[in-house]
Every structure is written in C-alpha cells, then in structure tokens.
Design a binder for these strands. Structure first.
Lengths: 197, 197
DNA sequence: ACCTGAACACCGTTCAAGT
DNA sequence: ACCTGAACACCGTTCAAGT
C-alpha cells in the first residue's frame, strides 16, 4: 500500500470510530469521508461496504474478546468466566450502537466481511458455555448460537434509551436462566460450584 | 373528512400494511404513496411522521392485544396468562419487522404517536405480571418495563433471520427466568400453582 | 496506483400552485 | 378542503478524468 493510501486508510478508520461511536452503526459514510478530509470514493475503495468498515473497526474488539475468553477460561470458574465474558461482550457492543444487528445477519451470511469474526466470537462463547455445562452450572438445552442470540438481544436492549438504565438488571435475569438449570441465582450457582470443589 | 380524502387515507393504510409486512418498518414512504396511487405529499398530510403511520397500522393489533389480556386474565391461571400473552405480543410484533425498535423509543417519548399505545401495552403486561407475582409464580424483582423489554428483545431476535428458527426455544428460556423465582421450568410452575389451589 | 468531482438514482420533507 | 408536482438537501454507489 502506498504511503498516502495508508494515511487515508488510517484517517478514515479513526474518524469512523468517533463518528460511529457518536451516531451509531448507520452513520453517514459521506459524513465520515468528509470529516476525514477524503473523497467519498476513496472511502468506498478502502471499504467497499459498510460492513467492511465495521469489520475493520471491530477487529480490535474482536481480538480483545477472544483473548479475554482464553484468559477467563484459564483463571476463573466456568460459571463466572461465562458470565463475565458475556458482560464484556455486551459492553463492547454498546460502544457502537446498532452494530449488533449487523453481527446477527453476518452470522449466517458467509459473504459478509463480519462473518468470520462473528463465527469466532460464537466459538469462544460456545467454549465457555460448554465448560459450564460440563460442570453442571449452565443449562444444557442451549447452544452457542442461543448464547450469541441472548447476548445480542441484551446488547440491543442497551441501545434503547428507554431500557438502557435497566440493562444490568435484565442481564442478571437472563443470566439466571442460562446458569443452573435448577434455576438458582448466580450467587447460588457459585456456592454450588464451590461446594463441589 | 371529505370522501376523497377518506378514500386516500384507507388506500394508504392498506398499502402500507402490505409494504411494511414485506419490507419492514423502514420501508420507503415514497414507495407506499406510489403503490397507493397517491401523491407523496398526501401521505405526509395524513401521516405527518412514519410513527404516525405505524400507529394507525398497529392500532388494530394494540386493541386486539389489550382485549386478549382481559380475556386471559378472566379465563386462565396467572402464569399461563402471562406466558400466552407474551407469546402473542411477540407474534404480532413479528408481523412488522423492525417495528419493535420504534415501540421501545416511543415508550419514553411522550411526543411519539406510538407513546400512548405502548404505555397501554406495558400496563396490560404489568397487570398480568402482577397477578403472577402475587400468586408466587413470577419473580418479584422485575416490573412491567422489564417485561416489555424482554418481550421486545425476543421480538427483535425473531426479526433476525439467523435466529428466527430458535426464537421459540429462546422464548422458553427467558420465560423460565420470569416465572418462578426458584427457577423451575414452566411445567413445574404450573404444577406448583395447581398444588396450591 | 491512487485519488477526486460529478453524475445517478434513491430518500424524507416542504411548499407554491392547482382544483 | 384537499391534492399534486417540483424543489430541496440528503443518502449510497459508480466511473471517467486527473496526478
């Protein structure tokens, strides 16, 4: 890549980050190009679709979340690791309002630039879920796609101004459904897990 | 209203119903006016905002859901009434893809044409929830807004093609979190309720 | 190689001009 | 009273013309 091209690429990505943080994933691409001091057509060659731009933007978050899954898997109890990871997933998604819808559609569209990353995220979640299921602290009638869907729906709720204040509480409600098929609360699950050790 | 105006109004509403069923709540208003054989400005006078059009379109569903709540309250056990009503709420929302986002924002925006209807829906849900809470078959740490949010998030999941096939299962997962704080499954809640009678 | 301005076909919104 | 066509300021996408 030529040095001027690289400079434009970096400027676009930086501006896209701030604009999409401000206005959401459906922000005007024209506006992004304008604020980056670059022709609109230049943006389109670097990022042929909106999803390609989102992918470049989210790559950092995706890599971080994947690493975090490994970290939690090594250091924490299966149930805690699962819950903590989901919490971070939702927090990351919240940074870019509306992005979770793109991630959902990308999941079943192999053509989407976001497809590979979303499948990777789902795999990471599935691994944490399986560990908790094997330990008996997560219900066994859900799979990684269900987990992805529930996390996505909570992230979506976080994007709704009327609901955002309650999303932490709703997270604990949904978590209680995921953890411990017997239906105990998170703390109870932790107790059960500790007692078993 | 003049008879020609009434005719245009009805034509617009009928066409909007089919177009929004096909293309979702963000369908082109120009397209709706075109297919109704009416000038675009005419659509805007009858329905000054997209939300006003949605409100007129959803009024039928809202009235139906309100009546259904009364019906279920009279005829069914609190827990069953709650779950059945939520199921129908989600099915109705599913008819117009993307409409649930408008309902969420309308909930806290008194200016929105959808505001009153959404508040009414929330009230109906709150009533059914309170009955189940009083009976001991629904967890007591959630309120009507939480219920609205959870139902809305499930409706949103139903709009995602990748998730739609699993939405019935996810509904049962979330329901299990709403019902019976002890966390038993729906059938167990029903058993508990029956035993108490 | 890479960039850009202009053109294209859309969109929602407004309003003067018609009946 | 009610309707309409045209104008306006946007949008994403494409492409010939520039360096």
């Amino acid at each position: 890549m030529r040095t001027d091209a690289k400079k434009n690429y970096n400027a676009l990505l930086a501006v896209a980050g701030t604009v999409i943080t401000e206005q959401g994933a459906d922000a005007s691409l024209r506006d992004i190009a304008r604020r980056a001091g670059v022709g609109l057509a230049t943006l389109f060659r670097h990022f042929p679709t909106r999803e390609a731009l989102l992918e470049a933007l989210l790559r950092v978050n995706f890599d971080q979340m994947t690493a975090r899954a490994d970290e939690l898997e090594a250091a924490t109890s299966p149930a805690d690791a699962l819950v903590l990871w989901l919490e971070e997933f939702i927090a990351h998604a919240h940074q870019y309002r509306g992005v979770v819808a793109s991630m959902m559609t990308a999941l079943e569209d192999p053509q989407s630039p976001l497809h590979a990353s979303c499948v990777t995220m789902r795999s990471a979640g599935t691994r944490l879920l399986s560990r908790a299921q094997a330990e008996g602290t997560a219900r066994t009638d859900i799979d990684g796609t269900d987990l992805f869907a529930l996390a996505g729906s909570l992230a979506w709720l976080g994007d709704q101004p009327a609901i955002a204040p309650r999303v932490d509480h709703l997270f604990s409600v949904v978590s209680s459904a995921i953890l411990t098929p017997a239906g105990n609360r998170t703390t109870a699950a932790r107790t059960a897990s500790r007692d078993r050790d």
